Amino acid sequence: MPMSLLLNLSALLALVPAGLFALRSPGRTGGLFWGLLCVAVTGPLLFVIVSVGSSWRSDLAMALWLAVSASLLVYLLLCWFRREARGLAVLLMPYLFLLSLIATIAGTAPHIVLNEGLPGTWFSAHIAVALATYALLTLAAITGLAIFIKERALKKKRVSSGIAPALPSVADCEKLQGQLLGAAVIVLVCGLVTGIALQNYLTGQPLAFDHKTVLSLVTLGILAALWLVNSRFGMRGRTVARLVLVAYLLLTLAYPGVKFVAEILV
């Protein structure tokens, strides 16, 4: 078995224990939870570090692995500072496993290595900020999904069955989602600034209005408006959750979606 495939499968399997634990023991957040979460973070992160090496890969598989790694890292920090966020594992881990499985399948496609002449500082900063934005919005979208599930369970009076008991309360989810939205807006603005600097360095033009840029700007507009309106006037949890999911879809189309079309459909 090729070493790259072995590392890929190891990273994929590293997510399984944490996912099974979250599904079979919802609500438990002791030492075993932290141990399995650290394993889940370490697997994809090591795969990314080893795979990238000295040259940057720009393909769908690596984009997905980077998104998974960033989401897990941000989630680990979020769980440390916000105890109620630990209940989101029951939704987040299966979703990230699905992304990792798609990345494993897509990994058979040829790898694309970017030009080594790219400016290291601006390029690295832009990638880091973009991944942080995607991770924050991923967690905000998962929190929105938790609001849907929790409110549906309350409406049908099934709060003690399924995965609903493991999820944070609706009030906690709404508060957490608002904080994640604010952080995503700030980081996305930083991402656009570093993107403009990188684009100006490469082409002499400050902004290229391609599909990625347009979708990113639309996403920023939705998130900023949503954050400001929600923080000032307040909005119903389901309404915010729907708009966050729309913004997440747009950001997904702007980055992994473009690579999927270019590598798989075209």
Rank of each mutant, 00 (worst) to 15 (best):
L13D: 05
A14N: 07
V16L: 05
G19W: 10
L32V: 14
L32R: 13
W34P: 10
V41A: 12
D59N: 07
A61R: 03
S71I: 13
S71E: 11
L88V: 08
Y95E: 06
L96D: 05
T104A: 13
A106E: 11
A109I: 01
G120R: 14
W122C: 01
F123H: 05
F123P: 04
A125C: 14
I127G: 14
V129M: 14
T133A: 13
T138L: 01
A140Y: 07
A140R: 10
I147P: 00
F148N: 01
A153N: 10
K156S: 12
I163Q: 07
V170E: 15
G182M: 06
G182I: 06
A183H: 02
A184V: 01
V185I: 14
V185R: 13
G191R: 13
L192G: 06
Y201W: 08
G204L: 09
L207S: 05
L207V: 07
L217F: 15
T219C: 13
L220A: 11
G221C: 02
L223G: 12
L223Y: 06
A224K: 07
L226N: 06
V229E: 08
R232Y: 11
R232V: 07
M235Y: 02
R236H: 07
R238F: 00
R242K: 10
R242C: 06
T252L: 13
T252G: 13
A254G: 03
A254N: 02
A262V: 12
E263D: 11
